[in-house]
Design a protein around this nucleic acid. Structure first.
Ligand SMILES: [Mn+2]
Ligand SMILES: [Mn+2]
Ligand SMILES: [Zn+2]
Ligand SMILES: [Zn+2]
Lengths: 123, 123
DNA sequence: TGACTTTTGCAACTAAGTTGCAATAATATA
DNA sequence: TATATTATTGCAACTTAGTTGCAAAAGTCA
């Protein structure tokens, strides 16, 4: 009853996305899997729809994806070497923001938070 | 001694960017100022370099700009109608995050935070 | 095995943004 | 003010991430 078929290509891509701890771009995948770029883009779209992966947009405007079975977290991004480090934020940001948002009758559902700076190597 | 010249085009664009409270895209400007798109992109780059405006990348991947003389703030974005509302966040996010970041010897300089949800009209 | 449906590759396309170059406009200086 | 200098502009051509239509290939299920 699952309309998604587990093709060779799909499993290879999923394996890579599951095993790579940090967000992967379409181009990264293209270099590692012998498949047409059209297929990469279509598979990424399909996997997002299926809830297997999540898109993460970086400020260099590259769109990357990471496995969806991760806990909610954020990223530290080195502005020099582009290294990405996962980080979890201790407080409930949405709850804090909802207080100000309520004044405008805005209902917050999700948020997106990234930090920029220098990694150990680059400082 | 200022290498930036205050041309007709530049003043028109600056005026729009100063008077529009919410982030403006290159396309927005193109529709309002009778000027070539190449000029728009070059002026935006130049104004960012000069520190007059700041680029803001939204998760829908549109790049927008807003006047740089604003206090640090964030955005509430309606996922339905794309309305943008400015919001300030009461706490020092970077300080809180720096505690976790220090474990990886990462030095935070800036951050980027957006909230998504529904505006009053769309809920 | 088929029949049915999804996935794939290919080539052509789209759209945001960039580049080189010659013409034009702004500014500095005589 | 007139002229020299340098930045800005428009244009056309280009780049590049991502998209689309279509026919062939592969996956699923009876
Ligand atoms: Mn991550
Ligand atoms: Mn704003
Ligand atoms: Zn680094
Ligand atoms: Zn709305």
């Amino acid at each position: 009853m699952n309309k998604y078929r587990l093709t060779q290509t799909r499993s290879q891509l999923l394996k890579l996305l599951k095993n790579t701890p940090l967000p992967v771009s379409a181009e990264d995948l293209l270099q590692k899997v012998p498949v047409n770029k059209t297929t990469i883009y279509r598979q990424l779209t399909s996997m997002v729809a299926q809830g297997l992966i999540k898109p993460v947009l970086f400020t260099d405007r590259t769109l990357r994806y990471e496995s969806a079975d991760r806990d909610h977290h954020h990223h530290l991004i080195c502005t020099n070497c582009k290294k990405i480090i996962d980080i979890s934020f201790p407080e409930n940001i949405e709850q804090t923001a909802q207080t100000s948002a309520s004044a405008q009758k805005f209902k917050i559902n999700t948020h997106h938070l990234e930090f920029f700076g220098l990694c150990q190597n680059c400082q």
